[in-house]
Write a protein that binds this DNA or RNA. Structure first.
Lengths: 216, 216
DNA sequence: TCGTTCCGATCTGCATGCAGTGTTGAACGC
DNA sequence: GCGTTCAACACTGCATGCAGATCGGAACGA
C-alpha cells in the first residue's frame, strides 16, 4: 500500500514485517485480530524468532498493541485517536506542501496534473476505490517532492494508522470536493506561493478532520 | 530524560529498551557506538533475546541503525537530517501550542510561569546545563497540556533524535533570546489566541532551525 | 439453565544452540 | 618497511527448548 522505504529485505524478519504490515494496511487483518507468533511462523515456514521481530516492529509503530503474557493484536484505533491523527496530519501535510513549493520542479507539475485529470473523471463516475488510490497518490507525490525523509516517514506512519482506523469507521469525504481542494493545492504549489500551498494543504486535511469530529 | 510513557515495564526486554534509550539520550552512548548484543546480554545478566528485542525497537525509532550481518550502532544523524527534524518540530510545536491554547487551564499558566521565572535567572547566570533542562520542561509542559498522545509521541521521537544529533553538533541558541521567545509563547497561549500561539511556537523553532542551517 | 471449578492445550517471554558471515591481526612474501 | 593471505575469533540471524501464564471448555453442582 505505502512505499517500502526500507533497504532490500534480505532478512526473513524484514520480509515478515513488510508482509504483516501489508496485511494490516490492506484490511486483511482487521483491528482486534490476534497475531499468534507460532501460527504465523508455521504459515510462513519459518521459526518464531523472525516473526517475533516483525511483531515488535509493528508494536513500536503502533499498528499493533501488546499486553503482557496475552499476545498481540491489530490496534483498535478510537475515533478520538483518529481525530488526533488528523491534527498531526494537518500540520505535516502543510509542511510538505510548503517544502514541495520551495523545491518545485517541472516533474512534480506533470505528475500532479496527470493525477488530477484522472481523479476528476473518477470522481464523476463515483469510483470510490480508485478515488482512494488517487487521493493517496496525490499526497504521496507531494511528500516525495518535499525531499524530507523525516516528514515523509511521519506521514507514512500517520497514513498507515489512518487506514487501520478507517476499517472500523468508513467515511466518504466527498470525492468531488476532494478534487477541488487538490486542485487548489496544485495551483498554490505551481504559483510558488509557499504560504498559500501550506494553507491549502492544511485546509484540505482540516475539513476531513471536521467531518470526522461531526460523525460521532 | 523524556517521560517513560510506556506501560510499567515488567518485561526484561522493556527494561533494556528503556535503559539503552536512556544511555543514548544521555550521551553515554555516542553516535557511532556499536551495540553488541552478546556483550550487553552479559552486562545486564540476561540472555540475548530481550537485548535483541530492545535493539529492534531502537532501530524502529531511528535512534539506532543496523546493517545486514554487521550489527547495530547508535545513529549518526547528519546536519541535513537535523534540519529536517527541525522542519518537523516547527509544525508539531505549533500544533501543540494551538491545542494547548484551546484547552487552556490555569494549571498550565502556573507551570509555565514558574519555569519562565527560573529560566530568566538561569539565563542571566549563563547556566547552560540548567537552561537545556528548563527549555525542555517548557516545551514538555505545553505538549502535555495539548492532550494529544499522537503529537506528543512524535515530538518525543523528534526530541530524542535531536538530542543524539546535538552530541556531534553542539549549538547554543542564545539563552536570553530563548527566554524571550518562550515568554511570547506563554503570553499568546494565555491570551487565548490560538493562531498567535501557533505562530509564536513556530517562530521559536524556526529561528533555531535557521541557526542550524547557518552553522555549516 | 446457569454458574463454578479444574484441567489440558496453547502461547508468551526468556534462554540457548548453531551455521554463515564479517573482522582482525599475525604470518608471510616482496 | 609495506601490502597480502589466511585462519581464529566474534557476532548476527534464525531455530529451538522450556517454565510460567492465560485461555477455553468439559465436568460438575446448584
Amino acid at each position: 500500500m505505502t512505499a517500502p522505504l526500507q533497504t532490500d529485505p534480505q532478512r526473513v524478519g524484514e520480509v515478515l514485517y513488510l508482509a504483516l504490515r501489508d496485511r494490516i494496511l490492506s484490511g486483511e487483518l482487521k483491528p482486534g485480530a490476534k497475531l499468534s507468533v507460532p501460527a504465523l511462523a508455521e504459515e510462513f515456514g519459518v521459526s518464531r524468532s523472525p516473526v517475533r521481530d516483525a511483531v515488535i516492529r509493528l508494536v513500536q509503530e503502533d499498528l499493533v498493541t501488546e499486553t503482557m503474557n496475552r499476545g498481540a493484536e491489530v490496534a483498535r484505533i478510537t475515533r478520538e485517536e483518529l481525530v488526533s491523527l488528523y491534527e498531526a496530519r494537518e500540520v505535516l501535510e502543510g509542511a510538505v506542501a510548503r517544502l514541495a513549493t520551495e523545491k518545485y520542479q517541472a516533474s512534480l507539475r506533470r505528475t500532479l496534473l496527470a493525477l488530477l485529470t484522472e481523479h476528476r473523471e473518477v470522481a464523476a463516475q463515483q469510483d470510490f476505490g480508485r478515488h482512494i488510490e488517487l487521493d493517496a497518490a496525490f499526497h504521496r507525490a507531494i511528500r516525495q517532492a518535499a525531499q524530507s525523509p523525516v516528514l515523509a516517514r511521519m506521514l507514512d506512519g500517520v497514513q498507515g494508522r489512518v487506514l487501520v482506523a478507517m476499517r472500523s469507521t468508513s467515511l466518504t469525504g466527498g470525492m468531488v470536493q476532494a478534487v477541488h481542494e487538490h486542485q487548489a493545492i496544485f495551483e498554490a504549489i505551481g504559483s510558488g506561493d509557499a504560504d498559500a500551498a501550506e494553507e491549502a494543504a492544511r485546509a484540505h486535511i482540516r475539513r476531513l478532520k471536521e467531518l470526522l469530529r461531526a460523525a460521532d
